[in-house]
Design a protein around this nucleic acid. Sequence first.
RNA 1: CGGGAUGUGGCUCAGCUUGGUAGAGCGCUGCGUUCGGGACGCAGAGGUCGGAGGUUCAAAUCCUCUCAUCCCGACCA
Length: 420
Amino acid sequence: MEGFAKECAVVTHYRLKNDPDGGIMVDPEAKLEEELIIRPTSETIIWNTYKGWIQSYRDLPLLINQWANVVRWERRTRLFLRTAEFLWQEGHTAHATFDEAEAEAKQMMEVYRSFAEDFMAVPVLSGLKSEGEKFAGAHHTYCIEALVQDGRAIQAGTSHHLGQNFAKAFDVQFQTSEGTLDYVYATSWGVSTRLIGTLIMAHSDDKGLVLPPRMAPIQVVIVPMGRDDETRAKTYAASDALAAELKKAGWDDVKMRTHVDKREKESPGFKFNDWELKGACLRIELGPRDLESGSVIISRRDLGEKVTVALADVVSHCKAQLTEMQSALFQAALARRTEMTRRVDTWDEFQKAFEGEGGAGFIVAHWDGTQETEDAISEATKATIRVIPLAPLHPDDETPGTCVYSGKPSERRVVFAKAY
RNA sequence: CGGGAUGUGGCUCAGCUUGGUAGAGCGCUGCGUUCGGGACGCAGAGGUCGGAGGUUCAAAUCCUCUCAUCCCGACCA
């Protein structure tokens, strides 16, 4: 686990005590004889276990998935994107053949891609990590890479084909159907609460969160209005009835997630802003005037405009708008990414693109494939190779050219960016 | 670990250069009026100015030390 050694927190003492000068301190009497290393990832425990579980090809393939908190000693943390402790999902598989492990690794990359794009409405590039960026213990690493609104890239998920590296390190051999012994092939893959940060940074605006309907805890919020108890009783009843109707009608094969905001200490204006801050997808205003006219006012979070909808049409309107919003957010994010993706052919232009603080979007450029060039480029510009796309972004990207840094022959373009 | 900055009511900060009664906005409490885009008026409550020491008639302000937090740099999902 060489690549993680510097990220491991080490427990050296087993208790604290009251500091005579106030507060608490580490009890120097409580030094551990043997220090505990907090694992930054579970490969060690998994492979120690797999060693005992795998003897024969009949034991394969094997898959363990878990949700776990992990700890890494981060020099500098960043909310959601890089925290010292985070929750993630990790899977570990063992296979009899390279090809089977390869299929697994690719399949999980695809699972992550479709979750990001179809649920989070965040377009991602999927492909291979360069040697310099891949997981230290991997044969090769697949990833999904998102670009957020400030032009920086976020690695949103990874899927590693570990080859036989861990099997050899932990001596996990199995008997093949032919009776010979071989090391197993392995994969591991994961996504974390970093996805939440990605989601926020991909869609939100100056008014607060913007959430795609499939991810939103509240899809429709109803704000009943009325300045006296009698009026409120009526608008509350109408709102509850409408909420029940929406919930029952459902959207995307599940109950529509609705809420009626009956807080009486807040003004309607405050509530409008409050729900925009929290990212409710649709807001329905229901006051005495609406009761009279038999209609309501509906506003969609990403558009902001108010439309009048007849009470009888509210259910169909909401269903249609949630569907449209889900797709509109993806399209808007995709358009931003396209806008922020450029092809660059000279070192001068490349450097200029990454000048200063902040992101510069995706820069698609030729690279000679060497580690030295990759290091030199990141040293000079802080930009790194984010992904070598599986499918070229543009057909010409796979046409050979010359490296933007070294001028040496390059087989294809790769994607550079400043990353979180 | 190296460099930079900041600690003042619950929150965000001004005041410090040039020592002289500790301030603003937001929030909070009470009353009244409001309620379809973050309400308004009036009246209030709330701070040993991060801590210790020093200079001075007098320190938030000057000096020394100390603690804490944040930001920027060397195999990061």
